[in-house]
Protein backbone atom coordinates (compact mmCIF):
# COMPACT_ATOMS: atom_id res chain seq x y z
CA UNK A 1 0.00 0.00 0.00
CA UNK A 2 2.79 2.41 0.85
CA UNK A 3 4.49 1.63 -2.44
CA UNK A 4 1.23 2.26 -4.29
CA UNK A 5 0.75 5.67 -2.64
CA UNK A 6 4.35 6.68 -3.21
CA UNK A 7 4.21 5.53 -6.84
CA UNK A 8 0.99 7.43 -7.45
CA UNK A 9 2.35 10.59 -5.82
CA UNK A 10 5.68 10.32 -7.61
CA UNK A 11 4.21 9.80 -11.04
CA UNK A 12 1.56 12.48 -10.71
CA UNK A 13 2.78 15.21 -8.40
CA UNK A 14 6.46 14.92 -7.77
CA UNK A 15 7.63 14.08 -11.26
CA UNK A 16 5.80 17.16 -12.51
CA UNK A 17 7.46 19.20 -9.78
CA UNK A 18 11.06 18.48 -10.81
CA UNK A 19 11.19 21.48 -13.14
CA UNK A 20 9.62 23.75 -10.54
CA UNK A 21 12.07 22.85 -7.77
CA UNK A 22 15.11 23.28 -10.01
CA UNK A 23 14.06 26.60 -11.53
CA UNK A 24 12.99 28.02 -8.16
CA UNK A 25 16.20 26.91 -6.51
CA UNK A 26 18.44 28.32 -9.23
CA UNK A 27 16.48 31.59 -9.39
CA UNK A 28 16.72 31.96 -5.63
CA UNK A 29 20.47 31.41 -5.72
CA UNK A 30 21.05 33.89 -8.53
CA UNK A 31 18.67 36.55 -7.21
CA UNK A 32 19.43 36.45 -3.50
CA UNK A 33 20.10 39.92 -2.24
CA UNK A 34 18.41 41.44 -5.27
CA UNK A 35 14.93 39.94 -5.45
CA UNK A 36 12.78 38.38 -2.73
CA UNK A 37 12.21 34.64 -2.58
CA UNK A 38 8.60 35.05 -3.71
CA UNK A 39 9.86 35.87 -7.21
CA UNK A 40 11.82 32.61 -7.32
CA UNK A 41 8.74 30.68 -6.19
CA UNK A 42 6.61 32.31 -8.85
CA UNK A 43 9.18 31.61 -11.57
CA UNK A 44 9.52 28.00 -10.47
CA UNK A 45 5.78 27.42 -10.62
CA UNK A 46 5.53 29.20 -13.97
CA UNK A 47 8.30 27.05 -15.43
CA UNK A 48 6.72 23.86 -14.10
CA UNK A 49 3.38 24.83 -15.61
CA UNK A 50 4.91 25.60 -18.99
CA UNK A 51 6.70 22.24 -19.01
CA UNK A 52 3.42 20.32 -18.94
CA UNK A 53 1.60 19.24 -22.12
CA UNK A 54 -1.63 20.64 -20.73
CA UNK A 55 -0.05 23.83 -19.43
CA UNK A 56 -1.50 26.58 -21.61
CA UNK A 57 0.18 29.97 -21.28
CA UNK A 58 -2.64 31.72 -23.11
CA UNK A 59 -5.49 31.52 -20.63
CA UNK A 60 -8.64 29.95 -21.96
CA UNK A 61 -10.21 28.52 -18.83
CA UNK A 62 -10.07 29.37 -15.16
CA UNK A 63 -7.15 27.12 -14.24
CA UNK A 64 -5.01 28.52 -17.08
CA UNK A 65 -4.72 31.73 -15.03
CA UNK A 66 -2.71 29.95 -12.31
CA UNK A 67 0.81 30.86 -13.51
CA UNK A 68 -0.24 34.47 -14.13
CA UNK A 69 -1.83 34.67 -10.69
CA UNK A 70 1.48 33.52 -9.22
CA UNK A 71 3.27 36.41 -10.96
CA UNK A 72 0.66 38.84 -9.67
CA UNK A 73 1.09 37.55 -6.13
CA UNK A 74 4.88 37.75 -6.36
CA UNK A 75 4.54 41.36 -7.52
CA UNK A 76 2.32 42.12 -4.53
CA UNK A 77 4.88 40.47 -2.25
CA UNK A 78 7.52 42.82 -3.63
CA UNK A 79 5.24 45.83 -3.08
CA UNK A 80 4.63 44.70 0.49
CA UNK A 81 8.37 44.73 1.06
CA UNK A 82 8.58 48.28 -0.27
CA UNK A 83 5.72 49.53 1.88
CA UNK A 84 6.19 50.63 5.47
CA UNK A 85 2.56 51.08 6.38
CA UNK A 86 0.75 48.17 7.93
CA UNK A 87 -2.63 49.13 6.46
CA UNK A 88 -1.15 49.36 2.98
CA UNK A 89 0.32 45.90 3.33
CA UNK A 90 -3.02 44.53 4.51
CA UNK A 91 -4.76 46.24 1.62
CA UNK A 92 -2.25 44.78 -0.84
CA UNK A 93 -2.75 41.29 0.56
CA UNK A 94 -6.53 41.70 0.38
CA UNK A 95 -6.33 42.93 -3.21
CA UNK A 96 -4.01 40.08 -4.18
CA UNK A 97 -6.25 37.45 -2.61
CA UNK A 98 -9.32 38.98 -4.22
CA UNK A 99 -7.88 39.21 -7.72
CA UNK A 100 -6.39 35.71 -7.64
CA UNK A 101 -9.71 34.31 -6.39
CA UNK A 102 -11.57 36.13 -9.15
CA UNK A 103 -9.21 34.71 -11.77
CA UNK A 104 -9.09 31.15 -10.49
CA UNK A 105 -12.56 30.34 -9.15
CA UNK A 106 -14.40 28.38 -11.87
CA UNK A 107 -17.61 29.52 -13.48
CA UNK A 108 -19.60 26.31 -13.59
CA UNK A 109 -23.34 26.29 -14.29
CA UNK A 110 -23.93 24.20 -11.16
CA UNK A 111 -21.25 25.64 -8.90
CA UNK A 112 -21.97 25.43 -5.20
CA UNK A 113 -21.80 28.08 -3.79
CA UNK A 114 -22.50 30.46 -6.70
CA UNK A 115 -19.41 32.08 -8.18
CA UNK A 116 -19.75 35.47 -6.51
CA UNK A 117 -19.93 33.83 -3.08
CA UNK A 118 -17.18 31.39 -3.99
CA UNK A 119 -14.82 34.21 -5.01
CA UNK A 120 -15.47 35.99 -1.72
CA UNK A 121 -14.98 32.76 0.23
CA UNK A 122 -11.67 31.90 -1.44
CA UNK A 123 -10.43 35.48 -1.05
CA UNK A 124 -11.27 35.58 2.65
CA UNK A 125 -9.74 32.15 3.32
CA UNK A 126 -6.57 33.22 1.53
CA UNK A 127 -6.47 36.48 3.49
CA UNK A 128 -6.83 34.66 6.82
CA UNK A 129 -4.05 32.21 6.09
CA UNK A 130 -1.67 34.90 4.77
CA UNK A 131 -2.42 37.12 7.75
CA UNK A 132 -1.58 34.26 10.11
CA UNK A 133 1.77 33.86 8.42
CA UNK A 134 2.49 37.58 8.50
CA UNK A 135 1.63 37.74 12.20
CA UNK A 136 3.90 34.81 13.01
CA UNK A 137 6.62 36.06 10.69
CA UNK A 138 8.49 37.81 13.46
CA UNK A 139 9.17 34.66 15.44
CA UNK A 140 9.38 31.85 12.91
CA UNK A 141 12.46 31.32 10.80
CA UNK A 142 12.41 31.18 7.03
CA UNK A 143 13.34 27.55 7.00
CA UNK A 144 10.52 26.67 9.40
CA UNK A 145 8.00 28.42 7.20
CA UNK A 146 9.23 26.64 4.11
CA UNK A 147 9.05 23.29 5.87
CA UNK A 148 5.50 24.05 7.01
CA UNK A 149 4.49 25.05 3.47
CA UNK A 150 6.02 21.90 1.99
CA UNK A 151 4.12 19.75 4.50
CA UNK A 152 0.88 21.58 3.75
CA UNK A 153 1.43 21.34 0.01
CA UNK A 154 2.22 17.64 0.20
CA UNK A 155 -1.00 16.91 2.07
CA UNK A 156 -3.01 19.05 -0.36
CA UNK A 157 -1.50 17.21 -3.32
CA UNK A 158 -2.50 13.92 -1.73
CA UNK A 159 -6.06 15.16 -1.14
CA UNK A 160 -6.34 16.24 -4.78
CA UNK A 161 -5.12 12.82 -5.94
CA UNK A 162 -7.66 11.11 -3.69
CA UNK A 163 -10.35 13.29 -5.28
CA UNK A 164 -9.36 11.88 -8.69
CA UNK A 165 -8.08 15.28 -9.78
CA UNK A 166 -4.62 14.26 -10.88
CA UNK A 167 -4.06 17.46 -12.83
CA UNK A 168 -4.83 19.50 -9.71
CA UNK A 169 -2.53 17.20 -7.74
CA UNK A 170 0.25 18.02 -10.19
CA UNK A 171 -0.47 21.74 -9.93
CA UNK A 172 -0.24 21.69 -6.14
CA UNK A 173 2.88 19.54 -6.38
CA UNK A 174 4.53 22.07 -8.70
CA UNK A 175 3.68 24.95 -6.38
CA UNK A 176 4.98 23.06 -3.36
CA UNK A 177 8.18 22.16 -5.16
CA UNK A 178 8.69 25.80 -6.12
CA UNK A 179 8.47 26.68 -2.42
CA UNK A 180 10.90 23.90 -1.53
CA UNK A 181 13.42 24.91 -4.19
CA UNK A 182 14.92 27.79 -2.22
CA UNK A 183 15.42 25.42 0.71
CA UNK A 184 18.29 24.04 -1.30
CA UNK A 185 19.89 27.47 -1.30
CA UNK A 186 19.28 29.19 2.05
CA UNK A 187 19.39 32.93 1.76
CA UNK A 188 20.50 35.37 4.43
CA UNK A 189 18.15 37.90 2.88
CA UNK A 190 15.02 37.01 4.75
CA UNK A 191 11.61 35.51 4.20
CA UNK A 192 10.68 37.31 1.05
CA UNK A 193 6.88 36.92 1.11
CA UNK A 194 6.72 33.27 0.05
CA UNK A 195 3.46 32.85 1.97
CA UNK A 196 1.88 35.68 -0.03
CA UNK A 197 2.39 33.62 -3.21
CA UNK A 198 1.84 30.14 -1.81
CA UNK A 199 -1.25 30.40 0.37
CA UNK A 200 -3.74 32.27 -1.87
CA UNK A 201 -2.78 30.07 -4.84
CA UNK A 202 -3.11 26.93 -2.75
CA UNK A 203 -6.51 27.97 -1.41
CA UNK A 204 -7.77 28.61 -4.94
CA UNK A 205 -6.42 25.29 -6.22
CA UNK A 206 -8.10 23.41 -3.40
CA UNK A 207 -11.38 25.10 -4.30
CA UNK A 208 -10.90 24.01 -7.91
CA UNK A 209 -10.42 20.46 -6.69
CA UNK A 210 -13.55 20.66 -4.56
CA UNK A 211 -15.63 22.11 -7.42
CA UNK A 212 -14.56 19.36 -9.83
CA UNK A 213 -14.70 16.47 -7.43
CA UNK A 214 -17.20 13.65 -7.70
CA UNK A 215 -15.42 11.73 -4.95
CA UNK A 216 -16.41 11.01 -1.36
CA UNK A 217 -13.62 13.14 0.10
CA UNK A 218 -15.17 15.34 2.83
CA UNK A 219 -15.47 19.04 2.02
CA UNK A 220 -13.44 20.16 5.03
CA UNK A 221 -10.41 18.27 3.70
CA UNK A 222 -10.13 20.79 0.87
CA UNK A 223 -10.18 23.89 3.05
CA UNK A 224 -8.42 22.83 6.23
CA UNK A 225 -4.76 22.55 5.14
CA UNK A 226 -4.17 26.26 4.36
CA UNK A 227 -5.16 26.94 7.97
CA UNK A 228 -2.49 24.61 9.26
CA UNK A 229 -0.38 27.78 9.53
CA UNK A 230 -2.67 29.21 12.22
CA UNK A 231 -0.98 27.33 15.11
CA UNK A 232 2.20 29.22 14.25
CA UNK A 233 0.42 32.27 15.69
CA UNK A 234 1.38 30.88 19.10
CA UNK A 235 4.78 32.41 18.49
CA UNK A 236 3.30 35.79 17.58
CA UNK A 237 2.58 36.56 21.21
CA UNK A 238 6.26 36.50 21.88
CA UNK A 239 6.83 39.74 19.95
CA UNK A 240 8.67 42.40 21.88
CA UNK A 241 7.03 45.87 22.10
CA UNK A 242 7.52 48.18 19.16
CA UNK A 243 7.58 45.51 16.57
CA UNK A 244 4.49 45.39 14.40
CA UNK A 245 3.36 42.12 12.81
CA UNK A 246 4.38 41.95 9.21
CA UNK A 247 7.17 44.46 9.57
CA UNK A 248 9.63 41.61 9.72
CA UNK A 249 8.87 40.50 6.19
CA UNK A 250 12.08 41.99 4.99
CA UNK A 251 14.27 41.25 7.95
CA UNK A 252 17.42 39.24 7.93
CA UNK A 253 17.52 35.88 9.61
CA UNK A 254 19.33 37.20 12.64
CA UNK A 255 17.75 38.23 15.91
CA UNK A 256 17.67 41.93 15.17
CA UNK A 257 15.88 43.73 12.40
CA UNK A 258 14.65 47.08 11.32
CA UNK A 259 11.84 48.19 9.05
CA UNK A 260 11.75 51.06 6.58
CA UNK A 261 9.67 53.08 9.03
CA UNK A 262 12.62 53.34 11.35
CA UNK A 263 11.17 51.27 14.15
CA UNK A 264 13.43 48.61 15.47
CA UNK A 265 13.12 45.79 17.88
CA UNK A 266 14.05 42.21 18.50
CA UNK A 267 12.08 39.02 18.66
CA UNK A 268 12.27 36.53 21.42
CA UNK A 269 13.01 33.01 20.39
CA UNK A 270 10.07 30.81 21.31
CA UNK A 271 10.47 28.29 24.06
CA UNK A 272 10.87 24.65 23.25
CA UNK A 273 7.44 23.93 24.66
CA UNK A 274 5.76 26.57 22.47
CA UNK A 275 7.61 25.27 19.43
CA UNK A 276 6.55 21.70 20.10
CA UNK A 277 2.94 22.72 20.72
CA UNK A 278 2.67 24.84 17.59
CA UNK A 279 4.30 22.28 15.32
CA UNK A 280 2.29 19.52 16.92
CA UNK A 281 -0.87 21.43 16.09
CA UNK A 282 0.28 21.97 12.52
CA UNK A 283 0.85 18.23 12.09
CA UNK A 284 -2.46 17.44 13.79
CA UNK A 285 -4.39 19.70 11.41
CA UNK A 286 -2.74 18.05 8.42
CA UNK A 287 -3.52 14.57 9.73
CA UNK A 288 -7.16 15.56 10.33
CA UNK A 289 -7.34 16.68 6.70
CA UNK A 290 -5.43 13.79 5.14
CA UNK A 291 -6.82 10.72 6.88
CA UNK A 292 -10.49 11.15 5.88
CA UNK A 293 -9.38 11.80 2.30
CA UNK A 294 -7.39 8.56 2.24
CA UNK A 295 -10.19 6.58 3.86
CA UNK A 296 -12.79 7.98 1.42
CA UNK A 297 -11.14 6.04 -1.39
CA UNK A 298 -8.52 3.72 0.09
CA UNK A 299 -5.88 3.16 -2.57
CA UNK A 300 -5.52 -0.47 -1.60
CA UNK A 301 -9.20 -1.25 -2.42
CA UNK A 302 -8.72 -1.84 -6.10
CA UNK A 303 -5.41 -3.59 -5.56
CA UNK A 304 -7.05 -6.25 -3.40
CA UNK A 305 -10.41 -6.33 -5.19
Amino acid sequence: MVNFILTMLWETAFAAAAVSILVAGVMHWFCRGRLPASVAVSCGFFAGWASQDWGRLQPKRYLDWSPWASILLATVACLILLSDRRWIRLLLVLAACGVSAWLLVPDFPRLVPPRSYAVALVAVLGLISVSAVLLADCCVSERSFRVAFVMIGGVCSLIQAQSFGLKFSQMVGMLTAAVAGPLLFPSPQGKGGVGVVFLPLLTAMMFMGYANSSSDVPVFCYFLPPFACLPLLIHANRNSPGTAPGDDLQTAGSTTHSDPGGRSGSFTRPTTKATLVSWGLVVAVLIIAAVPAILAHPPWEEELG
Binding site: L111, G165, K167, S214
Partner: peptide, 18 residues
Amino acid sequence: ADRLTGHLKNEDFFSVNE
Protein backbone atom coordinates in the same frame (compact mmCIF):
# COMPACT_ATOMS: atom_id res chain seq x y z
CA ALA B 1 -13.50 0.91 -12.35
CA ASP B 2 -14.90 3.25 -9.69
CA ARG B 3 -11.70 5.30 -9.35
CA LEU B 4 -11.50 5.61 -13.12
CA THR B 5 -15.11 6.82 -13.25
CA GLY B 6 -14.26 9.57 -10.78
CA HIS B 7 -11.14 10.47 -12.74
CA LEU B 8 -13.02 10.60 -16.04
CA LYS B 9 -15.64 12.92 -14.52
CA ASN B 10 -12.96 15.26 -13.19
CA GLU B 11 -11.06 18.09 -14.87
CA ASP B 12 -8.59 15.71 -16.51
CA PHE B 13 -11.22 14.43 -18.93
CA PHE B 14 -14.92 15.30 -19.16
CA SER B 15 -15.10 17.88 -16.34
CA VAL B 16 -18.79 17.06 -15.93
CA ASN B 17 -19.51 19.89 -13.49
CA GLU B 18 -18.29 22.44 -16.04
